[in-house]
Structure formats: structure tokens, C-alpha cells
Amino acid sequence: MRLTLGLLILATLALGALLAPFAQAWLGHDPFSPDLFSRHEAMSAAHPLGTDELGRDLLLRLLYGARVSLAVGLATALAAAVLGTAIGLLAAWRGGVPDAALMRLADGMLALPALPVLIILAAADTGRIGLPRGEPLSDVVRIVAILTVFGWVGVARLARAAALSVLAREYVRAARALGASETRVLLRHVAPNVAAPVAVATALAVAGAILAESTLSFLGLGIAPPMASWGNMLSNAQELVFSAPLAAIWPGFAILLAVAGCTLVADGLRAHR
């Protein structure tokens, strides 16, 4: 039930993101261009969720913001899952010095205060390495790369623990004694048992990445306007909470739905293990 509900929530958000251009054509508004004559309009047929402080349609900005926020969350989670699984399997497989070195690196990453370091990295001048700021694609790539730096650690520890547990079992020892290759042992016995905890961690990582992107964008260090993300929509509305609360309520509710959907998916996957 939880898995189905979570998937339904995420599928609805993803469908809304995919249909954003069609909604824009239907409503006939440009969600990126200011219209100062339409500032803070209430919900109506022309603006189903009202308008923001610059007269831009909130529904369209939510849908386009879903494209950015969900893309950042999914890309970060997948990148962290691939990198973390590879590191965790390598540590468990090789043992000894490689295992100790990789796990001490993971411990060092966990010891760092994540939010201050993320803020420092997000504030760095990426133009020096050929990634101009303010362009949608470069901003997304920058945020995904920064979040992946911290996101792989938890996945790596889970993958290592699951791999060590499998490698110590009798059937794996028997397979090796019968002459099974290391590749066969890895693909046939280790990978399927590692997949379940990694899938749970990946679902939770999507929620964490969405929250982290929203935090950085809220602080003005993430996705730059006029491109919409749920975080910078909240940032633009922070001074209007009492005079125009809808501009803050809708992106906050979207973040809540996305995080709740990811959490329900993770709980459902954990229950089906």
C-alpha cells in the first residue's frame, strides 16, 4: 500500500512536469516573464493557483519547477547509488588496505558538517572550470555534482555491509570451491542481495537531494532565476508569507509531496525485501 501510494504521488508530480509545456500553451502565460499588472492575483480560471510577486503564473512555475527539482533529485540519487555501490563492492571484495582506505574516506565525509560545506561548494565560482552560473543546464550539473560528493557515502556503507554478509555465506564459499569465477560470484550471488538495500537508500536519497537543492536555491546558491525550482520559489516568497501566502504555500506543499512520496516508496521497498 505504501509503495503504491508513494509511486502514485511521484508519478503525478512527474506527469505534471512532463505536461508543463502543454499547460503553458493552454493557459497562454509565460512563466518566466514578469507581468507587473498581474501581481498577487488570487486563484482564477486564468491563473488556477494565482500569481507571484512578479505576476508569473504559480501553477506553471510549479510544473516547470518540478522538472528541475525532480531531475536534480533523481540524477543525484542515481549518481550516488552507482558511485556508492561501486565503492562499497570494491571495499568488500578486496578487503585489507583498499577496504580500510575507502571506509576511512567515508568516515571522513560523514564527519564533515554537510550543510556548511555544501554552501561553500555551491558558492564557489564555477566559471573558472568552464561551468558558467545562471544557465539552467550548468546550474543543474553543478548542484548534482555537489550533492553527489556527499550522497555516495551512505550507499557505499550499505553496499559494503550487504556484500560482506553475502560473501561470508556457505553457498558463496561452495560456489568458489566449485570453481565459479569471481565475476559469476559477483553477478549471481552478491549483486542481487545488494540491490534491495541500495534501492531503499536510493529512494531516500531522492528525497534528500530534493530537500538539499531546495535549501541551496532558497539561499540563492542553487538554481538561478528566472528558471523555476521549488527552492527559489520559496526564496522569492519569503518576504510575502503574510501578504501573499499562496506564493510560499504551493512550492512548500510540492516539496512535502515529493519527500513524502519518496519516503513511502522507500518504506514499501523495505517491507517487500
Rank of each mutant, 00 (worst) to 15 (best):
A123M: 02
G108L: 12
G130V: 01
E170H: 14
D139L: 03
V155S: 08
W250R: 04
V97D: 12
A114C: 01
E239S: 15
T51N: 02
L27Y: 02
A161R: 05
A17V: 10
W230L: 03
L257G: 03
G88F: 06
D139K: 04
L105R: 06
R104M: 05
A260D: 00
S181D: 02
A23L: 07
T215S: 11
V206W: 10
L158Q: 13
S44Q: 04
D30Y: 12
V200L: 07
A199N: 11
N236V: 11
H272W: 11
G208M: 14
L83E: 08
R169W: 00
M227T: 14
A80S: 12
A180V: 05
P226Y: 00
N232D: 00
H272S: 15
T148I: 01
A25E: 13
A91M: 01
A71I: 06
L137E: 01
A203E: 13
L246W: 12
I9G: 14
T126M: 09
I249V: 14
V72W: 04
V144T: 12
L59D: 00
G134C: 11
N232T: 13
R176W: 07
P226I: 06
A100I: 09
S165L: 07
A258D: 04
A180F: 04
E135S: 13
A101M: 13
P192I: 03
V155K: 02
L19H: 06
L158A: 09
G261S: 04
T51I: 08
A266H: 04
M103A: 02
A80Y: 06
E182I: 00
A254Q: 03
A114F: 04
D139F: 09
T51M: 03
M233W: 02
T183K: 07
D52H: 13
A195C: 08
V259Y: 10
L211F: 15
P197T: 05
L115E: 07
R188W: 02
L10Q: 02
R273E: 14
H189A: 07
L19K: 05
L60E: 00
R67V: 15
V153R: 09
A207S: 14
G208W: 04
R128D: 04
E213N: 03
T51Y: 11
